[in-house]
Design a protein around this nucleic acid. Structure first.
Lengths: 216, 216
DNA sequence: ACAAAAGTGTTGCATATACACCCATGG
DNA sequence: CCATGGGTGTATATGCAACACTTTTGT
């Protein structure tokens, strides 16, 4: 049945993703440069329309696959953006998600998307974004800050096994402040967010590191 | 500009409200009986379309005013529902909110809506609801459980001044378990969620109760 | 041997829980 | 005076923050 009432016809539903990764202990977000109006040449978050035959989570999965070739991403909805004029084209609400992937998949992503204008940006060096994506990304980082010590939301920020110092650097990068190493380890172990695997990383630097994995 | 692509035309945005109150220490939710198909004669949560000239919060405010005559309600978004077939009429996503009002306003609401088929139901005695509102209401109660000790989300569940035993009963009703009286008081006072006003309720029962108010 | 990075434990403080008796009022 | 319901404090356990030295490896 076609919607006729002008009060609420021509509405659209978008999904938008703040996709994070960590490289060398620095947290980065994935952005795409627009090729067309509106916001031509501006960087924006990955996203797209939700189709009529899918729920918003499925739309987000499809968009990640189509626009970045990514499958099996861990992601979580965190807010809705709905100012009437947030898109100059038509009335469009955005369901916003956080996603995380590990650095190995980033390398793969860089190869497969090198013809596109897409890149990773340090979260403390973000350019001006198009639409209201600046606000969305800011909210995403705030949401992350509130979740990292209580959930395994960062599972998939690293490969299955990772060293504690690398995770520690990622936390400090997200929280944007110093975190005590000893308390950090205790806290995550006590809450069963990470697990000591007993394995050791064959040293590339100086003293070898123990390898951990996320629980769940 | 009209949306033409059948993949995403004729989408609609709804707002849905789980409105709570407390009467005699029992928490209740506001439901409306549908008069038309689909789900004729089923009870559902208050809700309606989001118009093109408003964001979803504004739509929620307008719906509360139009459908229940209520202004200045404290409310908070908590989830999005978007299964493609959740409405048999057309593709419709729901932005879901929690709201709370005090018992005096409930009395007013009962008078102004007595011609409508609307009523309050104890949260442990909910009838079968239309659409996916059973799931939405269940999620709303779970969300409330997680918020009541950390936020003043229940501000407005009671009139400005309330007794601690009445608040205590509401907490037990929401959490569906016994809560120690002494710890309950300490916790809420220490976290500055409620404030001792120094006033005393002129006793109707036995020993008079102190009156408290929510902070903020 | 030394430089560089990783590992580890204790103490104090704040917060949460468990638990029982006294007090004020109305009838 | 007694029944009803409201008010209160202490002791224990748990979670979080502050803090510095030792260990392992490569050069």
């Amino acid at each position: 049945m076609d919607i006729k009432n002008p009060l609420y016809k021509n509405q659209g539903i978008h999904v938008v993703l703040a996709l994070f990764t960590a490289e060398e202990g620095k947290v980065k977000v994935f952005l795409i440069k627009r090729k067309n109006q509106p916001f031509k040449d501006k960087w924006i978050l990955l996203g797209g329309a939700c189709y009529n035959n899918e729920d918003v989570d499925s739309a987000m999965k499809r968009e990640m696959l189509e626009k970045a070739g990514l499958k099996n991403i861990k992601f979580k909805m965190f807010n809705v953006y709905s100012k009437p004029d947030r898109s100059p084209v038509c009335r469009m609400i955005a369901i916003a998600y956080i996603g995380v992937i590990d650095a190995n998949r980033v390398k793969f992503l860089k190869e497969t998307t090198k013809t596109q204008d897409a890149d990773w940006f340090l979260i403390d060096r973000i350019p001006n974004l198009g639409y209201d994506h600046q606000e969305i990304l800011g909210d995403a980082i705030e949401f992350l800050k509130g979740q990292i010590f209580d959930t395994n939301i960062l599972k998939d920020l690293f490969p299955k096994y990772f060293t504690l110092p690398s995770l520690h650097k990622a936390y400090e990068s997200i929280l944007n402040k110093h975190v005590d190493r000893r308390n950090f380890r205790k806290r995550l172990l006590q809450k069963n967010i990470i697990i000591d695997t007993g394995k050791i990383e064959s040293a590339n630097g100086k003293k070898p590191s123990k390898l951990y994995m996320f629980a769940d």
